[in-house]
Amino acid sequence: MLKERMRELVQHNAYELLLVILLAGSMAFSASLSPYFLTVTTLFDMTSQFMEIGLMSLAMTLVIILGQIDLSVASILALVGVVLGLLNEGGVALGFAIPAVLALATLLGLVNGWLAVTFRLPALVVTLGTMALYRGIGQILLGDRSTYGFPGWFVSIDFRYIPGTPVPLPLVIFATFAVLFYVLLHRTTFGRLVYAVGSNAEACRFSGIAVDRLQVLVFGLSGLMAGIAGLMMTSRFASARWDMANGLELDVITTVVLGGTSIFGGRGTIVGTVLALFVMGTLRYGMGLANVLPQNQSVVIGLLLIVAIFVPEAWRAWRARSRRRAQKGGEARAEVARDSAG
């Protein structure tokens, strides 16, 4: 009975288990590189490096399950940083500026969704355009300088901890959102609809589901999360530039896809995304400890992405083939048995 249960668990969560093994592997790898890795403070502090990616990956998981993609998240992040900096320079209290830029980020996301839905365009093209447009607006607004001078309470979020513990604030924020997104995707009607639309949008439309509205909302959510990530990164760097987080959308998409979300939509989990985030973060941090240049780290991440897609796909194909062969073999044996009996 227990054995049966275990097998079921493994079969249903094979990919998540693979990610756990990968995570253990990358931690062992990092620990072997530096004696300073396996300390509680290091393990916690390292997470602040990739919490922005994490926040955006949560919403991106929904976007990709819908069968869409959002290339503009890093540009929204940068624009949020720039606008926040300019408002701050203009003497607007951050208490007003922060809600304003979050509203802006959500609006930018909604615009992505609205454009895709209204003109029946693939999100890939729309967000390719807005990726350039949003970052370009930041460039026009700020030019080639940085904006800084944020109040003390706002900056260095990665050096703030839950009092008395080594848990940094960005991790707490990410964990909160991870739980929220888990509930949203796996425990609500909204989440089921995301899967349903991602599996078969046409059928959903005929079933009377407001497919378009759902899609616009999910893109709005993606914008909002990019906005929160923008606040976090601006706080960490205590400054903003138009070109901050350049290319980060690739890391976000890599995280989601490595987490087992199908790029064709309809399949994926928040747990997978969170695991993949930590696999990538640990790996990058470990390579950093080993003085591997960031550009060279990207090679490993890129290979990991390809392997993560290629291996499960090849495995599935191989299993399907061997099952078919086994079936054929079984039929032949049955025939032989019948013949000999007759």
Partner: peptide, 20 residues
């Protein structure tokens, strides 16, 4: 390899750049 084009070339984008 049946890797979706977006993913495959996103991966090789980073790998080839790393090779540079």
């Amino acid at each position: 390899g049946r890797v979706p084009a977006v993913i495959a070339t996103l991966g090789t984008l980073t790998v080839y750049r790393g090779l540079v």
